[in-house]
Nucleic acid binder design. Structure first.
Length: 104
DNA sequence: GCCATGGCTAGTA
DNA sequence: GCCATGGCTAGTA
């Protein structure tokens, strides 16, 4: 009997689908899970991400294009990872946000 | 069960 | 204001 994935597992699964060079938002993931109101819980789930390598949570940012948080190495690390993937950032915001925003 | 804690968000003021 | 988590407390048995 296959037990259902927990909320966190479903979050991780979605995040895994975001391709390199693209970003998504906490809210978009929440919507993909059924309700935008889950967005805050999505943030919490990502903070608890046990595998930051496999689950690229650095590709998840705020709905207004700001970076949001990052528990592994802090914001500088998040910024560096994104830049290394070709995402342009100015200050604390993603440039061409809509253009690099991945749609599920 | 209750309560605090967040990597948040849409919609007022 | 929302809602999944995690830690902790009554208050039963």
């Amino acid at each position: 009997m296959m037990n259902k994935d927990s909320f966190r597992d479903r979050v991780y699964k979605l995040v895994t689908r975001i391709p390199k060079g693209k970003v998504s938002t906490y809210g978009d993931i929440a919507k993909a899970l059924g309700n935008v109101r889950l967005s805050r819980a999505v943030g919490v789930a990502l903070k608890l991400n046990p595998k930051p390598i496999e689950v690229p949570c650095h590709r998840v940012v705020k709905s207004n294009g700001e970076l949001g948080g990052y528990s592994y190495g802090g914001l500088d690390m998040k910024k560096r990872l994104l830049k290394a993937e070709g995402i342009e950032i100015s200050g604390n915001k993603i440039k061409n946000f809509e253009k690099v925003r991945y749609k599920f």
